[in-house]
Write a protein that binds this DNA or RNA. Structure first.
Length: 105
DNA sequence: TATTTGACCAAGA
DNA sequence: ATCTTGGCCAAAT
């Protein structure tokens, strides 16, 4: 087992609460965790030691575009579509509605 | 210890 | 609408 930094562990734990058919963003995760490390969170997703238990494919960019994925965004799009999420031109259809609201602290 | 690197973001041009 | 720039923070080198 590799040593897991506290922020990485909290990020994975929080992400697991996002249900299928909904999405979140790098920023929303950071915000809910009380940090501004959006970019670091992108790195955590890239590593994602718990895939597919941790649904990193449900994390997209703040503007509703797909963002990145280890192995290619095509795969990410396929996974999202399999959950009923519609995508066109690399952006989520009806993005604000599908965005999962984290419980307020 | 210092520097570089990102699956980012917001604001400008 | 597309592209650039500066800022942000944790990890890796």
């Amino acid at each position: 087992m590799h040593a897991m930094t506290p922020l990485a562990k909290r990020t994975y734990t929080l992400l697991k609460t996002v249900p299928a058919g909904r999405v979140t963003t790098y920023k929303a995760l950071a915000d809910a965790l009380g940090t501004r490390a959006y970019r670091a969170i992108g790195q955590f997703m890239k590593h994602n030691p718990y895939a597919p238990a941790v649904p990193c494919h449900r994390v997209v960019s703040s503007d509703g575009t797909i963002g990145g994925f280890n192995g290619g965004i095509t795969k990410k799009i396929r996974l999202l579509r399999a959950e009923g999420i519609k995508i066109s031109k690399n952006s989520i259809i009806d993005f604000p509605t599908l965005l999962f609201p984290f419980p307020a602290s």
